[in-house]
Each structure stands twice: as structure tokens, then as C-alpha cells.
Design a protein around this nucleic acid. Sequence first.
DNA 1: GGCACGGTGATTGCATGCACTTTTCCAGAA
DNA 2: TTCTGGAAAAGTGCATGCAATCACCGTGCC
Lengths: 233, 233
Amino acid sequence: MPGKRSLVRSGTTVDQMVRAIADRIVTGYLRPGERLDEVSLAARFEVSRTPVREALGHLSAMGLVERRPNRGAIVAVVTQEHLASMFESMAELEAICARFSAERMTGGERRALEMEHQASARLVQLGAEEDYEYFNTEFHSRLYRGAHNAHIQDLTVTTRSRLAPFRRAQFMLPGRLAKSWQEHDLIVTAIMRGDGAAAGKAARDHVSIVSEASAVFAAVEPVTSVLSRSARQ
Amino acid sequence: MPGKRSLVRSGTTVDQMVRAIADRIVTGYLRPGERLDEVSLAARFEVSRTPVREALGHLSAMGLVERRPNRGAIVAVVTQEHLASMFESMAELEAICARFSAERMTGGERRALEMEHQASARLVQLGAEEDYEYFNTEFHSRLYRGAHNAHIQDLTVTTRSRLAPFRRAQFMLPGRLAKSWQEHDLIVTAIMRGDGAAAGKAARDHVSIVSEASAVFAAVEPVTSVLSRSARQ
DNA sequence: GGCACGGTGATTGCATGCACTTTTCCAGAA
DNA sequence: TTCTGGAAAAGTGCATGCAATCACCGTGCC
């Protein structure tokens, strides 16, 4: 889905709830398998069940929650297989974006990418995981935008957001920061050369490595039903 | 002209409405830009506004309708640029599926693909556009399944469905049928050889050609706001 | 001991009503 | 005539209520 063509700027209650719940899921605050009770959510957000239902519908379409008929909604439980398929898709999507970026980025976009990338080298030296994570997100977003293809960008951003819960903490692996920067460097260099094939390959390899690094956590943190009531507080 | 299919109360009302409305949009019965008034839809389907709203939410997530806060919903208006980006994405997605299929299809899947493909040669000789269109859909679906990647399959199917309104009637171009089969043949041959790169390229080229053939119609049939009130009746 | 079955509670699905936002249209003035 | 202000109308957003459905569970039978 693909979805969420709904206007981002809208301040409707439903959209705020969608963002809020999606955020809780993406950040891992809500665990896979955890129940999303309509009345509880309604009470928590101080609204009625109607907007809650609508929000759950959106989230379901986004693939973040799973709705079982007459059995309530839960945070989507992703199997290892499906997780792997998403990571693989992500690698391919990023490869496309990088290839297109190498072929289509404007001069300004190229300069901005290169500058940001060089500036981030300092973050690596400082070992600033948090700041680097922010830069990392921005870096990839530049690649998506640079592809100059709205639909691919949409697919990529959506897939990335669904993978977010499994990507976090990847930079806590020792040495990951420096390696990430070097992988980015390969991509940037290829893009500056206008070498689409090389940029695509570098981006695919980069994501594949991230995927493996993340798979460690996915394995450590089992994707089972966690019903800690305190976690919802 | 009225809604021929009256709702059977068996399945969930919302899902049936989603299908019905999506069908009307995909087949071009509802034109881009046309307003989707909640009360009118509610009256037409003989339900209250609540399920209508939910259905519109789903359709919005599917990208088929556009919801403006407090301003109602319209059939999604696709600009030429966005349409082009979707076709380009489709070509890339199909290329991925074909490449993966070449590498991963089981023996059974390969045999089925080849057999169906050879059988369809008769449809080309007969000039049976309708039947060939059905086969064509099945052919591509086999490619998506053969990729053995649930997420890519999902992205591809979704994108394909969003392009459906603009793909129809492509086979009415003279000679398109035979050419399509030859393009399929290139893909099948590459897959049977297990040549992922060749299969990907053949699939990308195939979709690009379809995209150009379809662009003709998109140009002929302008994507502007059509508010014919009688059309909604 | 296991399975079938019916009661009960919880939860969903839908209808309806009201309030708020947006649009439209008309009156009055420049 | 054209522009502006504002009020009415239209339509959406959300709250509330009710009924149907399903899951859960205890009891009785095999």
C-alpha cells in the first residue's frame, strides 16, 4: 500500500491518531501481536470509537495492524519469511532509486548529497549514533527524491517505514557506523560519476548488509505475542 | 444504468462496496475528478454513511480516491507525470519479478508458465483479444508469484491495479497482440534458461512498450474533472 | 478423558443525530 | 458591472446507541 494518499497536512483527529499509533508501532512502543482494543484506544485518545475504527482501517491498509474479523485488531505480526521478503524488496527499491538518482539528479541535488555526506564523516569520528541515524535517514530520503519518480518514492518510503521497527538499533553493532559511511561513500561516488549500474549495486549491497545486521535483532527479539499491559501505558 | 448488483448481505458490506466502487473506477465508469458524495453513495448502496466512509477510507489507502479534509472525496486524479512514474515503476517491478522468477521458479512453475504461454499462441492467431487479455493477466501474475517474494508481489499487484484504468484497450492497437506474445516469449525463454538479467531486461522492455501503447489512450482520453451528474446515476 | 454444545460476555458493524467546516449564492456598495 | 461581506445550505467529522455476531468457557454426554 501503498496507501496513505490522505493529505499529510490535514489536522483531522483520525490522521493524528494514525500517525500516533503508527509511530508507537514503528518505534517498537507497541509490540507485534499486541491487541489494539477499540474502546481502550478511544479512551486513551479521548475520542469515540468511530475515528478509532477509521484509524485502524488506515493502519490495516498500511500493513501495520492486522484486523481479524470479530476478533479485534492486533499489531501486525510479521513472519521471518515476510520480513526477509520486505528487506529484499527494500534492497531492490533502493537500488532503483540509486540508479535513477545517478542518471537524473540535478546539479544542486548532487552537490547537496555530496556535502551532507562529507559533513557526516565527523559524526562517525565522534561516534554520534543518534545524529548519524538522523543523517542516515536524510541520506536515503535524498536518494528517493533524487530518483524523480513519485511512485517509486512512495513505494520505497512506505516499505522503509514498515521495516523501521526492525532497523532500529542497527547502529549499536560495533563498527557499524564507519562501515555504513563507507557504503554510503560508494553510492555517492557512483552517483557523482553518473554510473547508474554501480550506484544501484552499491545501494543494494548496502541495504543487504543492513538487513543482515537487523536480522540479528529480529532473532534476539522474538516476534511473539506480548501482552504487557504496562507497555500500553 | 442503475447499480445492477444489489448487495447480498452475506459478506461484510464494506468490502463489497470497496470492490463495487473500485470496479467502477477501474473500468472507467467513474471518471477521475468525479465527486464521491457520501450520502449519494449511501443511498445508492442502501446503507448508512458509516460504512460508506469506511469504504472510502480503504479506497483512499488504495490510491483510487482522493480525500480532501472536510471537502469530500473524488476519484483520484492522476497527472501525466504521476502516470508516467507509475508506468516506469511498473516496468522496474516487473523486471525484478522476472529476474527473481528466472532464478527461483520451481520446475513446476516453469513448466506451467511455458505451457500456458505456448497455448496462448493460438489466441494470437485467432485474434481473440478478450481471451488473450485474460491470459496476459495470468501470465504476469505467474511472474509475480514466481518471484517468491511476498512483498514485491504485493507492491507489483497493487501498482498494476492502479494502472488498470489506463491499460485497458491497449490490445486494440493493430498488431499489438502478436508483438505482446513475442515479448512474452523473450521473457519466458530467459526464465527457462535461468538468465535473470535477460529476463529482467525483457520484462522491463515489455512493460515500457505497453506503457507507450497506453499513453496514447491516456492522451486521447483526457484526465480532467468530469462532473456529469447523469454518469453517477 | 475428550468432545460436543449451549450460555454469556465481549466486540464488532451499522444507523442516526448533531456540530462544525466549507462552499455557494445573494445582497449591497463602490 | 464587479467586488465584497455574510448568511444559508450542503456536506463532512465525530459521538452515541443498539443489535447481531463471534469467541470463550463451563457443563454434560459419550
